[in-house]
Design a protein around this nucleic acid. Structure first.
Lengths: 194, 194
DNA sequence: GTCTATACGACGATAGAC
DNA sequence: GTCTATCGTCGTATAGAC
């Protein structure tokens, strides 16, 4: 069918633009990534680019959404905390993406910014299964039962986000090790200690 | 002396501009705060404003510096963790300032951005005394001695920064309570438990 | 649906007069 | 120290070609 072929081409072009945008951000930083630059890198006019994404801000949000979908596919079979750590570990190899994420996470404070709705949904969707997971781990006695699972999940998220911003400023920070230290703090003290 | 009067006027005008800039950010958000808007609010032309601060980015960094100095004066006499919590508590009443801080903390990932140097210095200066403080608390047995004081301090900073970004997206978050829960986790388990 | 060319208003910043 | 005038760049709306 002709309609399907055209549609498929649109999908492919969209992904090509997302890749070009990420490359420009990685090469020139978030500040230096103009719509014109990204359009050039994708072999398109600025107006052609905006035909797909509506605005620069929506384009950037679409990059994060594509990353989420990729991570979900890649780490779906693993244990949740292992997957979480794997994502953090992988992020240290894509500073451009981390910079984009940090910028949009800050911009999301403005309710009128497209990133606002994205982060609200993402947070709600991501936190729920993790909460149940930690509650189950508490019942198994694997982690302290005197802390609210909701607090644990929120802390992990906020810690990971803050760590990534801090890592951009000081790449010497070992993000996975930092997170693991926090997880270690949640384990109940052995009865034989002290 | 004439020289002194002129200098004093420059200082006063600088602070007036800082106040106007913060008011504009609070009213219109970080995105909506243009140099022209801020200059209007301060009763100045855009060029007149930039005479004092060089660039928009430096102006915003100057706001954070002024806040730091104010906080230092206000909470210097208190216990360090009490002061830390007091700042966090106060921040919940100035969302414009928090938004500005979150945006610049993300922008600091770019080494060419004025916020980069600011955050590097601030972090180094702030973390050192806190590290010694927690090390001392460990020797007194007030907090667990199996965690690195450097890790604690970095976690507190990163947690506070991340929490503020998250709070902008979801103002329902109780930032001080969240931090206090973390501090509670650092206390050694009582010997009588279990 | 896909895309280009053109144009517009707002932006941050600079030069130079006063 | 502060202005006006102006510059180049930005994001993006519009009109219309294919």
């Amino acid at each position: 069918m002709a309609g399907r072929a055209v549609y498929a081409k649109g999908i492919a072009k969209r992904e090509e633009i997302l890749g070009a945008a990420l490359a420009v951000v990685a090469a020139q930083g978030y500040r230096g990534a103009s719509v014109r630059d990204i359009a050039d890198a994708a072999g398109l006019s600025p107006a052609g680019l905006l035909h797909y994404f509506g605005s620069k801000e929506e384009l950037f949000v679409a990059i994060l959404q594509a990353r989420d979908e990729h991570d979900l596919r890649t780490y779906a079979d693993q244990d949740a905390t292992a997957a979480f750590l794997a994502v953090i570990r992988h992020n240290a190899s894509v500073p451009g993406l981390v910079q984009l994420y940090a910028q949009l996470a800050a911009a999301a404070g403005d309710p009128a910014h497209p990133a606002h709705a994205y982060f609200r949904e993402r947070t709600a969707l991501l936190e729920e299964p993790f909460r149940e997971l930690f509650a189950a781990a508490q019942e198994r006695g694997e982690i302290r039962d005197d802390v609210d699972p909701g607090w644990i999940v929120r802390t992990l998220r906020v810690l990971a986000d803050g760590l990534q911003s801090a890592w951009l400023v000081d790449p010497g920070i070992d993000m996975p090790a930092h997170i693991e230290q926090f997880l270690a703090l949640l384990r109940p003290l052995p009865a034989t200690a002290r």
